[in-house]
Write a protein that binds this DNA or RNA. Structure first.
Lengths: 212, 212
DNA sequence: AACTGTGAATGCCTTCACAGCT
DNA sequence: AGCTGTGAAGGCATTCACAGTT
């Protein structure tokens, strides 16, 4: 596989979005698309789209713009370098919601096991995914060849869970807890902070309407 | 109120995090904190912390570093310029999870009404929040003086819901649907894209371990 | 001595603007 | 004529590095 020059986080985020959008468009029977059309759909600039696509080395093959099927395939080849089996820890409301939300749509990436300390939450099956006690996490991770973890436990347990995941040999973590966690080098961690997002909207919504 | 020079999105995000962290620390009895300690907690640099705090015009009052209570108060005064009543649209798994997750912790910002088209989901009360049919959204928004909206409907309905919210006079939107929505000028919209976040972790987790 | 506040430097990301292609 | 691919410019955000403060 041709080694593309290091893609930035922002670019990767947009590529995943392009892929989803392009799949929709393809299903609607569209075959080609221009950068300015794509830009319009996602409220971005044509130049940004062109540069992202340039970064992954796809070249439009005609005056018709990008060939949707080929472009999807190219994005796939860039993104799907990835391992695909995920563990989710914390089977509360949010954990369950993410489980069903995510496992419905996807195939290449899948949450294959869920974990919790609360006995009443284990041994169930949610969205095709069985629930286990945390104490057998490491064992399951090895057995099921899981390489990613999602943390949906309360803030005060998040670091503990991150440590357990790291110890189990996981390589990437997505953390929904309201606090950041520390992970060893070589392990990638990202965070979705719902509280921050809402507070941020509150702040800027207010600024914006004061401005006008 | 002193008009602070336009704060960036990134700065606001960090400020909300600082506030949460500082509240925790205060509850643990801590009174003062240095920038490098705060930095350590959230895996950031002391310089970043100092600049953020500088941006909101708070000045450390002694060699002991920042006074936690005063700093919290200062952050509050910056962030709480905001209106505080929120409507959530889409009472599926994710919507319900966010409702209970968010309404448990907060007081200044609150989800006060939830909406859905599905009759089986209405007239319930979740986390202290009553559920209504979408057709009465505008009326409720006015009655309850709601100024922010959270979208947790499937992608194909997201734009419709955004339009309804915009028409109802909402000023800010947080969109959890997997597609961006277009909103009129003067309305602030942000997005949390769970699918993108997971795919991104998958990508970088893999890159990182290939690197070493 | 050890911290903060901050101008200046750096680095990253986006946008411009235009040559080249069809 | 109208699009893409891309070097260069511009704009933001972070980090450096040090003067000022207690």
């Amino acid at each position: 596989m041709k080694k593309t020059e290091e893609l930035s986080e922002r670019t990767i985020e947009r590529l995943t979005l392009y892929r989803r959008l392009l799949s929709d468009l393809r299903e609607k029977g569209l075959e080609h698309i221009y950068s300015h059309q794509l830009a319009e759909f996602i409220s971005n600039t044509p130049a940004q789209i062109r540069r992202d696509i340039m970064m992954i080395g796809y070249v439009a093959n005609s005056k018709k713009g990008y060939t949707i099927t080929d472009l999807i395939e190219k994005i796939d080849s860039v993104l799907s370098c990835c391992d695909s089996r995920i563990a989710l820890v914390g089977i509360g409301n949010l954990g369950r919601a993410i489980l069903s939300y995510f496992n419905q749509q996807h195939s290449a990436l899948r949450i294959v096991a869920a974990f919790d300390n609360d006995e009443s939450r284990i041994n169930r099956v949610i969205a095709g995914c069985r629930c286990y006690p945390i104490r057998i996490l490491k064992e399951k991770v090895e057995e099921e060849k899981i390489s990613l973890g999602i943390i949906t436990v309360p803030g005060q347990s998040a670091q503990d869970v991150a440590d357990i995941l790291a110890d189990a040999g996981i390589r990437g973590i997505l953390n929904f807890a309201p606090v950041p966690v520390k992970v060893p080098d070589g392990l990638y961690a990202d965070r979705i902070d719902i509280t921050t997002a809402i507070e941020k909207v509150a702040y800027f919504a207010n600024c914006k309407s004061n401005k006008k």
